[in-house]
């Protein structure tokens, strides 16, 4: 079947979709947007979290056909989403081909990632994850970012318990969550300073 929907502000169309495919599969394998991750495909890990008409959901549990006509935001569109929320205009994003190729950047670019000179293309929360050391293997990171960004949108001054509750659907196996807590607190604090 054919499915049409909007991803990160761009209309997308997928053809020859098998009816049992999930939105996650279509994003990853048909649209070249593999940022949403496939850790469990049973709604138990949150690594595939996307926003469906604004609401964080597990894209592995959305049948592709259910996404017809809907608006999706994935981790690839998070920076642009944050910019629009902040009132900015410049468009940016990840080209599909770029997303498919991996070329580890040298630490030359690493110094650009420091908190002193945040890369303009990152959302504040993305920068906070890097700065706080919240990323190790990174497989949980996209889902956590989408979930945490939505929480901060609703609740700009969360308590620790609020953060834990909001992220209780996102498993991480590397970090022990401490630095993820740090990152969300950091993003909230930076957001507060700017406001």
């Amino acid at each position: 079947m054919r499915v049409n929907f909007t991803v990160n502000g761009r209309p997308q169309q997928a053809d020859d979709v098998w009816e049992g495919e999930s939105l996650l599969y279509v994003l990853r394998e048909r649209l070249g947007l593999p940022g949403s991750k496939n850790a469990c495909e049973q709604g138990e890990c949150g690594s595939c979290t996307v926003r469906l008409d604004g609401v964080p959901v597990c894209s592995c549990l959305v049948a592709a056909g259910q996404a017809e006509g809907r608006e999706i935001v994935t981790v690839e569109g998070l920076a642009e989403h944050a910019r629009q929320r902040a009132g900015g205009e410049d468009a940016c994003g990840t080209s599909l081909d770029e997303a498919r190729r991996w070329s580890p950047r040298g630490p030359g670019s690493q110094s650009d990632e420091g908190s002193t000179s945040p890369r303009a293309t990152l959302a504040p929360l993305q920068q906070a994850f890097i700065d706080a050391g919240a990323v190790q293997c990174g497989f949980c990171t996209p889902g956590l970012l989408v979930a945490a960004d939505e929480m901060l949108e609703r609740n700009p001054n969360p308590t620790d318990a609020d953060i834990r509750e909001a992220l209780s659907g996102n498993l991480c196996r590397c970090t022990g969550y401490e630095k993820i807590m740090d990152a969300v607190r950091l993003a909230a604090a930076r957001q507060g300073e700017e406001a």
């Binding site: 609401v55 959305v62 979930a147 996102n170």
Partner: peptide, 9 residues
């Protein structure tokens, strides 16, 4: 119920 993502849907 499960997680925030599941409760949303």
């Amino acid at each position: 119920v499960a997680s925030p993502q599941i409760r949303n849907r």
